[in-house]
Design a protein around this nucleic acid. Structure first.
Length: 352
DNA sequence: AATCTCTGCAACCGCCCGCGA
DNA sequence: TTCGCGGGCGGTTGCAGAGAT
Protein backbone atom coordinates (compact mmCIF):
# COMPACT_ATOMS: atom_id res chain seq x y z
CA UNK A 1 0.00 0.00 0.00
CA UNK A 2 2.44 2.56 1.17
CA UNK A 3 6.00 2.04 0.17
CA UNK A 4 7.60 4.65 2.27
CA UNK A 5 11.10 5.76 1.64
CA UNK A 6 13.51 5.18 4.43
CA UNK A 7 13.55 7.74 7.14
CA UNK A 8 10.69 9.70 5.78
CA UNK A 9 9.41 10.09 9.26
CA UNK A 10 9.62 13.67 10.38
CA UNK A 11 12.84 14.34 12.15
CA UNK A 12 12.18 14.53 15.80
CA UNK A 13 14.91 15.83 17.92
CA UNK A 14 12.65 15.37 20.81
CA UNK A 15 13.05 17.05 24.10
CA UNK A 16 13.55 13.64 25.57
CA UNK A 17 16.94 13.65 24.04
CA UNK A 18 18.32 14.72 27.35
CA UNK A 19 20.21 11.85 28.76
CA UNK A 20 17.60 9.23 28.14
CA UNK A 21 19.71 6.26 28.93
CA UNK A 22 20.84 7.54 32.26
CA UNK A 23 17.27 8.27 33.12
CA UNK A 24 16.20 4.84 31.92
CA UNK A 25 18.88 3.25 33.96
CA UNK A 26 17.84 5.06 37.07
CA UNK A 27 14.17 4.32 36.50
CA UNK A 28 14.92 0.67 36.03
CA UNK A 29 16.94 0.45 39.15
CA UNK A 30 14.18 2.17 41.07
CA UNK A 31 11.70 -0.34 39.75
CA UNK A 32 13.93 -3.20 40.63
CA UNK A 33 14.28 -1.99 44.16
CA UNK A 34 10.56 -1.66 44.35
CA UNK A 35 10.10 -5.18 43.11
CA UNK A 36 12.50 -6.60 45.61
CA UNK A 37 15.51 -6.85 43.40
CA UNK A 38 18.88 -6.77 45.03
CA UNK A 39 20.26 -3.32 44.84
CA UNK A 40 23.42 -3.00 42.84
CA UNK A 41 26.25 -0.64 43.43
CA UNK A 42 25.85 0.77 39.99
CA UNK A 43 22.95 1.03 37.68
CA UNK A 44 23.18 -0.46 34.27
CA UNK A 45 25.44 1.56 32.11
CA UNK A 46 23.84 3.45 29.28
CA UNK A 47 24.12 1.75 25.95
CA UNK A 48 26.08 4.72 24.70
CA UNK A 49 28.38 6.96 26.54
CA UNK A 50 27.55 10.63 26.53
CA UNK A 51 24.05 10.29 25.26
CA UNK A 52 23.75 14.03 24.92
CA UNK A 53 24.07 15.21 21.38
CA UNK A 54 23.10 11.88 19.94
CA UNK A 55 20.55 11.94 17.19
CA UNK A 56 17.21 10.23 17.48
CA UNK A 57 14.39 9.70 15.08
CA UNK A 58 14.51 8.85 11.44
CA UNK A 59 17.74 8.02 9.75
CA UNK A 60 19.07 10.27 7.04
CA UNK A 61 20.39 8.65 3.84
CA UNK A 62 23.87 9.85 4.73
CA UNK A 63 23.69 8.08 8.06
CA UNK A 64 22.56 4.91 6.34
CA UNK A 65 25.49 5.17 4.01
CA UNK A 66 27.94 5.60 6.83
CA UNK A 67 26.52 2.64 8.67
CA UNK A 68 26.46 0.36 5.66
CA UNK A 69 29.93 1.34 4.58
CA UNK A 70 31.35 0.72 8.00
CA UNK A 71 29.70 -2.67 8.45
CA UNK A 72 30.72 -3.75 4.97
CA UNK A 73 34.30 -2.96 5.79
CA UNK A 74 34.59 -4.01 9.40
CA UNK A 75 31.52 -5.91 10.36
CA UNK A 76 29.43 -4.55 13.17
CA UNK A 77 31.67 -5.77 15.94
CA UNK A 78 30.66 -4.09 19.15
CA UNK A 79 27.52 -2.13 18.59
CA UNK A 80 28.36 0.18 21.41
CA UNK A 81 31.57 1.36 19.87
CA UNK A 82 30.32 1.23 16.30
CA UNK A 83 28.71 4.68 16.10
CA UNK A 84 31.86 6.44 17.17
CA UNK A 85 34.02 4.41 14.81
CA UNK A 86 31.59 4.90 11.95
CA UNK A 87 31.25 8.59 12.61
CA UNK A 88 27.62 8.42 13.57
CA UNK A 89 25.86 10.46 16.19
CA UNK A 90 23.66 7.57 17.13
CA UNK A 91 23.53 5.14 19.98
CA UNK A 92 24.67 1.61 19.28
CA UNK A 93 21.28 0.21 19.85
CA UNK A 94 19.81 2.50 17.26
CA UNK A 95 22.48 1.41 14.79
CA UNK A 96 21.79 -2.22 15.44
CA UNK A 97 18.08 -1.76 14.92
CA UNK A 98 18.61 0.22 11.76
CA UNK A 99 20.87 -2.45 10.40
CA UNK A 100 18.85 -5.49 11.38
CA UNK A 101 15.48 -4.05 10.46
CA UNK A 102 16.28 -2.05 7.39
CA UNK A 103 19.76 -1.95 5.96
CA UNK A 104 20.74 -5.60 6.06
CA UNK A 105 21.28 -6.71 2.47
CA UNK A 106 19.28 -9.89 2.83
CA UNK A 107 16.11 -8.15 3.84
CA UNK A 108 13.18 -8.84 1.62
CA UNK A 109 11.08 -5.76 1.21
CA UNK A 110 7.60 -5.39 -0.10
CA UNK A 111 4.27 -6.78 0.91
CA UNK A 112 3.93 -10.17 2.48
CA UNK A 113 2.76 -12.89 0.19
CA UNK A 114 -0.26 -14.95 1.08
CA UNK A 115 2.03 -17.84 1.74
CA UNK A 116 4.08 -15.79 4.17
CA UNK A 117 0.99 -14.59 5.96
CA UNK A 118 -0.16 -18.12 6.24
CA UNK A 119 3.10 -19.14 7.81
CA UNK A 120 2.95 -16.23 10.23
CA UNK A 121 -0.50 -17.21 11.38
CA UNK A 122 0.45 -20.83 11.75
CA UNK A 123 3.56 -20.06 13.68
CA UNK A 124 1.86 -17.49 15.83
CA UNK A 125 -0.66 -20.09 16.80
CA UNK A 126 2.13 -22.31 17.98
CA UNK A 127 4.63 -19.78 19.28
CA UNK A 128 2.64 -16.75 20.30
CA UNK A 129 4.31 -13.36 20.08
CA UNK A 130 7.76 -14.75 19.61
CA UNK A 131 8.47 -12.67 16.60
CA UNK A 132 12.12 -13.45 16.38
CA UNK A 133 11.47 -17.18 16.19
CA UNK A 134 8.72 -16.63 13.66
CA UNK A 135 11.01 -14.37 11.65
CA UNK A 136 13.64 -17.07 11.60
CA UNK A 137 11.23 -19.20 9.59
CA UNK A 138 10.69 -16.44 7.04
CA UNK A 139 13.92 -15.63 5.27
CA UNK A 140 14.37 -11.95 4.62
CA UNK A 141 11.69 -10.86 7.02
CA UNK A 142 12.45 -9.16 10.30
CA UNK A 143 10.76 -9.67 13.61
CA UNK A 144 9.70 -6.05 13.57
CA UNK A 145 8.10 -6.41 10.20
CA UNK A 146 6.23 -9.52 11.23
CA UNK A 147 5.14 -7.90 14.44
CA UNK A 148 3.77 -4.95 12.49
CA UNK A 149 2.05 -7.24 10.05
CA UNK A 150 0.41 -9.09 12.86
CA UNK A 151 -0.69 -6.02 14.75
CA UNK A 152 -1.96 -4.10 11.78
CA UNK A 153 -3.41 -6.82 9.56
CA UNK A 154 -3.61 -10.37 10.72
CA UNK A 155 -4.84 -9.70 14.23
CA UNK A 156 -7.71 -7.63 12.95
CA UNK A 157 -8.65 -10.18 10.38
CA UNK A 158 -8.86 -12.89 12.98
CA UNK A 159 -10.90 -10.66 15.24
CA UNK A 160 -13.28 -9.88 12.43
CA UNK A 161 -13.72 -13.57 11.89
CA UNK A 162 -14.59 -14.07 15.52
CA UNK A 163 -11.34 -15.78 16.27
CA UNK A 164 -9.31 -14.84 19.26
CA UNK A 165 -5.89 -13.85 17.92
CA UNK A 166 -4.25 -14.83 21.16
CA UNK A 167 -5.63 -18.30 21.49
CA UNK A 168 -6.52 -18.83 17.85
CA UNK A 169 -9.82 -20.17 18.98
CA UNK A 170 -13.22 -18.97 18.00
CA UNK A 171 -14.98 -16.68 20.42
CA UNK A 172 -18.00 -18.34 21.90
CA UNK A 173 -21.14 -16.32 21.46
CA UNK A 174 -23.60 -19.03 22.22
CA UNK A 175 -25.24 -19.78 25.48
CA UNK A 176 -24.76 -23.06 27.18
CA UNK A 177 -22.43 -24.91 29.47
CA UNK A 178 -19.35 -24.34 27.35
CA UNK A 179 -19.75 -20.65 27.00
CA UNK A 180 -17.10 -18.37 28.47
CA UNK A 181 -14.73 -21.16 29.04
CA UNK A 182 -11.09 -20.23 29.15
CA UNK A 183 -8.85 -20.96 26.23
CA UNK A 184 -8.00 -24.57 25.91
CA UNK A 185 -5.04 -25.27 28.09
CA UNK A 186 -4.48 -28.46 26.20
CA UNK A 187 -4.14 -26.57 22.98
CA UNK A 188 -1.64 -24.19 24.46
CA UNK A 189 0.23 -27.01 26.07
CA UNK A 190 0.49 -28.70 22.75
CA UNK A 191 1.55 -25.46 21.15
CA UNK A 192 4.35 -25.22 23.66
CA UNK A 193 5.55 -28.59 22.60
CA UNK A 194 5.54 -27.46 19.03
CA UNK A 195 7.32 -24.30 20.05
CA UNK A 196 10.09 -26.24 21.66
CA UNK A 197 10.27 -28.49 18.68
CA UNK A 198 10.61 -25.60 16.31
CA UNK A 199 13.23 -23.86 18.35
CA UNK A 200 15.28 -26.97 18.59
CA UNK A 201 14.76 -27.52 14.89
CA UNK A 202 14.20 -31.08 15.75
CA UNK A 203 11.82 -32.90 13.57
CA UNK A 204 10.18 -36.09 14.53
CA UNK A 205 9.74 -38.34 11.60
CA UNK A 206 6.39 -39.53 10.58
CA UNK A 207 7.60 -43.03 11.09
CA UNK A 208 7.75 -42.50 14.80
CA UNK A 209 4.02 -42.23 14.81
CA UNK A 210 3.82 -45.82 13.77
CA UNK A 211 5.21 -46.77 17.13
CA UNK A 212 2.16 -45.53 18.95
CA UNK A 213 0.40 -48.43 20.61
CA UNK A 214 -3.11 -48.69 19.29
CA UNK A 215 -4.32 -48.76 22.89
CA UNK A 216 -3.36 -45.12 23.10
CA UNK A 217 -5.72 -44.19 20.37
CA UNK A 218 -9.23 -43.07 20.95
CA UNK A 219 -12.22 -43.86 18.88
CA UNK A 220 -13.78 -40.46 19.33
CA UNK A 221 -11.36 -38.23 17.59
CA UNK A 222 -12.69 -34.75 17.84
CA UNK A 223 -10.72 -33.46 14.98
CA UNK A 224 -12.13 -36.07 12.71
CA UNK A 225 -15.50 -35.38 14.15
CA UNK A 226 -15.31 -31.75 13.27
CA UNK A 227 -13.68 -32.65 10.00
CA UNK A 228 -16.70 -34.71 9.18
CA UNK A 229 -19.06 -32.05 10.44
CA UNK A 230 -20.61 -29.17 8.58
CA UNK A 231 -17.48 -27.14 9.10
CA UNK A 232 -15.30 -29.78 7.60
CA UNK A 233 -17.66 -30.27 4.74
CA UNK A 234 -17.64 -26.56 4.03
CA UNK A 235 -13.90 -26.56 4.28
CA UNK A 236 -13.51 -29.42 1.87
CA UNK A 237 -15.88 -27.89 -0.62
CA UNK A 238 -14.14 -24.61 -0.28
CA UNK A 239 -10.78 -26.19 -0.81
CA UNK A 240 -12.08 -27.66 -4.01
CA UNK A 241 -13.08 -24.22 -5.12
CA UNK A 242 -16.79 -24.56 -4.48
CA UNK A 243 -17.22 -21.25 -2.74
CA UNK A 244 -20.95 -21.19 -3.02
CA UNK A 245 -21.10 -24.17 -0.77
CA UNK A 246 -19.77 -22.03 2.01
CA UNK A 247 -22.15 -19.21 1.78
CA UNK A 248 -24.55 -18.99 4.62
CA UNK A 249 -26.94 -16.18 5.42
CA UNK A 250 -24.43 -15.08 7.99
CA UNK A 251 -21.61 -14.88 5.54
CA UNK A 252 -23.77 -13.11 3.06
CA UNK A 253 -24.38 -10.33 5.48
CA UNK A 254 -20.97 -10.13 6.97
CA UNK A 255 -19.04 -10.45 3.78
CA UNK A 256 -19.89 -6.91 2.92
CA UNK A 257 -17.72 -5.65 5.69
CA UNK A 258 -14.19 -4.65 5.00
CA UNK A 259 -12.82 -7.35 7.18
CA UNK A 260 -14.00 -10.41 5.44
CA UNK A 261 -10.76 -12.10 4.73
CA UNK A 262 -8.30 -14.10 6.68
CA UNK A 263 -5.28 -15.54 5.10
CA UNK A 264 -4.26 -18.93 6.27
CA UNK A 265 -6.34 -18.87 9.36
CA UNK A 266 -8.02 -22.01 8.30
CA UNK A 267 -4.77 -23.76 8.31
CA UNK A 268 -4.18 -22.57 11.79
CA UNK A 269 -7.58 -23.65 12.89
CA UNK A 270 -6.97 -27.02 11.41
CA UNK A 271 -3.64 -27.38 13.08
CA UNK A 272 -4.95 -26.07 16.35
CA UNK A 273 -7.79 -28.49 16.11
CA UNK A 274 -5.38 -31.25 15.38
CA UNK A 275 -3.18 -30.24 18.23
CA UNK A 276 -6.09 -29.95 20.57
CA UNK A 277 -7.40 -33.25 19.43
CA UNK A 278 -4.04 -34.69 20.13
CA UNK A 279 -4.13 -33.21 23.59
CA UNK A 280 -7.47 -34.74 24.22
CA UNK A 281 -6.34 -38.04 22.85
CA UNK A 282 -3.32 -37.83 25.05
CA UNK A 283 -5.33 -37.95 28.20
CA UNK A 284 -6.98 -40.62 30.21
CA UNK A 285 -10.51 -40.36 31.36
CA UNK A 286 -9.30 -38.57 34.45
CA UNK A 287 -7.39 -36.10 32.34
CA UNK A 288 -3.92 -37.36 33.15
CA UNK A 289 -1.36 -37.26 30.45
CA UNK A 290 -0.32 -40.57 29.10
CA UNK A 291 2.67 -39.80 27.02
CA UNK A 292 4.79 -37.02 25.68
CA UNK A 293 3.76 -37.26 22.11
CA UNK A 294 3.48 -34.10 20.16
CA UNK A 295 0.24 -33.06 18.55
CA UNK A 296 1.76 -33.55 15.18
CA UNK A 297 2.59 -37.10 16.07
CA UNK A 298 -0.94 -37.71 17.11
CA UNK A 299 -2.23 -35.92 14.12
CA UNK A 300 -0.10 -37.91 11.79
CA UNK A 301 -0.83 -41.10 13.62
CA UNK A 302 -4.55 -40.68 13.53
CA UNK A 303 -6.63 -41.67 16.47
CA UNK A 304 -9.23 -44.05 15.31
CA UNK A 305 -8.51 -47.59 16.22
CA UNK A 306 -10.41 -48.98 13.31
CA UNK A 307 -7.73 -48.75 10.71
CA UNK A 308 -4.55 -47.02 11.55
CA UNK A 309 -3.31 -47.09 8.00
CA UNK A 310 -6.44 -45.61 6.59
CA UNK A 311 -6.54 -43.06 9.29
CA UNK A 312 -2.98 -42.09 8.73
CA UNK A 313 -3.79 -41.57 5.14
CA UNK A 314 -6.83 -39.59 5.97
CA UNK A 315 -5.17 -37.48 8.59
CA UNK A 316 -2.09 -37.05 6.51
CA UNK A 317 -4.05 -35.92 3.54
CA UNK A 318 -6.13 -33.74 5.80
CA UNK A 319 -3.01 -32.09 7.06
CA UNK A 320 -1.79 -31.66 3.55
CA UNK A 321 -5.09 -30.20 2.55
CA UNK A 322 -4.94 -27.78 5.43
CA UNK A 323 -1.44 -26.76 4.53
CA UNK A 324 -2.41 -26.44 0.92
CA UNK A 325 -5.44 -24.39 1.70
CA UNK A 326 -5.82 -21.78 -1.03
CA UNK A 327 -4.44 -18.54 0.24
CA UNK A 328 -7.01 -16.30 -1.29
CA UNK A 329 -7.81 -14.56 1.96
CA UNK A 330 -11.29 -15.89 2.01
CA UNK A 331 -12.62 -17.46 5.14
CA UNK A 332 -16.20 -17.51 4.14
CA UNK A 333 -16.43 -21.25 4.44
CA UNK A 334 -16.11 -20.88 8.20
CA UNK A 335 -18.64 -18.16 8.65
CA UNK A 336 -21.72 -19.31 10.32
CA UNK A 337 -19.91 -22.29 11.75
CA UNK A 338 -17.58 -20.71 14.22
CA UNK A 339 -19.74 -21.88 17.05
CA UNK A 340 -19.10 -25.43 16.05
CA UNK A 341 -15.47 -24.77 16.41
CA UNK A 342 -16.02 -22.98 19.70
CA UNK A 343 -17.98 -25.89 21.04
CA UNK A 344 -15.25 -28.14 19.87
CA UNK A 345 -12.72 -26.11 21.79
CA UNK A 346 -14.93 -26.21 24.81
CA UNK A 347 -15.07 -29.96 24.66
CA UNK A 348 -11.34 -30.03 24.71
CA UNK A 349 -11.24 -27.64 27.60
CA UNK A 350 -13.26 -29.99 29.72
CA UNK A 351 -10.52 -32.51 29.57
CA UNK A 352 -7.83 -30.15 30.76
C1' DA B 1 -10.21 22.57 -0.65
C1' DA B 2 -9.87 21.86 4.10
C1' DT B 3 -10.16 19.05 7.93
C1' DC B 4 -10.59 14.80 10.31
C1' DT B 5 -9.77 9.94 10.99
C1' DC B 6 -7.57 5.78 10.13
C1' DT B 7 -3.69 2.95 9.02
C1' DG B 8 1.09 1.40 8.28
C1' DC B 9 5.41 1.05 9.96
C1' DA B 10 10.06 2.84 11.44
C1' DA B 11 12.03 3.77 15.52
C1' DC B 12 12.26 3.91 20.34
C1' DC B 13 11.82 1.96 25.02
C1' DG B 14 12.46 -1.11 28.67
C1' DC B 15 13.25 -5.70 30.18
C1' DC B 16 15.73 -9.89 30.14
C1' DC B 17 19.45 -13.17 29.40
C1' DG B 18 24.01 -14.95 28.58
C1' DC B 19 28.78 -14.25 28.93
C1' DG B 20 33.01 -13.02 30.85
C1' DA B 21 35.84 -10.87 34.40
C1' DT C 1 28.99 -16.08 43.13
C1' DT C 2 28.45 -11.45 41.86
C1' DC C 3 28.46 -7.86 38.79
C1' DG C 4 28.82 -5.23 34.50
C1' DC C 5 28.11 -5.33 29.81
C1' DG C 6 26.42 -6.34 25.18
C1' DG C 7 22.88 -7.74 22.67
C1' DG C 8 18.27 -9.56 21.67
C1' DC C 9 13.43 -9.34 22.13
C1' DG C 10 8.61 -7.80 22.55
C1' DG C 11 5.75 -3.79 23.38
C1' DT C 12 4.70 0.87 22.35
C1' DT C 13 4.88 5.34 20.22
C1' DG C 14 4.09 8.72 16.97
C1' DC C 15 4.74 10.50 12.25
C1' DA C 16 3.17 10.53 7.54
C1' DG C 17 0.18 9.35 4.00
C1' DA C 18 -4.35 7.86 2.36
C1' DG C 19 -9.06 7.91 2.55
C1' DA C 20 -13.39 9.80 4.35
C1' DT C 21 -16.29 13.61 5.42
Amino acid sequence: MKSRLPSRRKSSFSSSLDNDNNRDSIDREDRKRGEGYVQREMGRAPCCEGKEGLKKGPWAPEEDELLVEYIKKHGHGSWRSLPKLAGLLRCGKSCRLRWTNYLRPDIKRGPFSDEEEKVVIQLHGMLGNRWAVIASQLPGRTDNEIKNLWNSHLKKRLLCMGIDPETHEAFTTSYGPFNKLPASASTRHMAQWESARLEAEARLSKDSSLLIPTSYRRTDDYFLRIWNSEVGESFRKFSRGDKTACESPVSQTSSSTKCGSVSGTTTEIGLAAAAASAAESNQNEDGKCRSNMSPTDYFMAGSDSSSSTDMEDESGSALQLLLDFPSNNDMSFLEGHTEDYAAYSAILTRGS
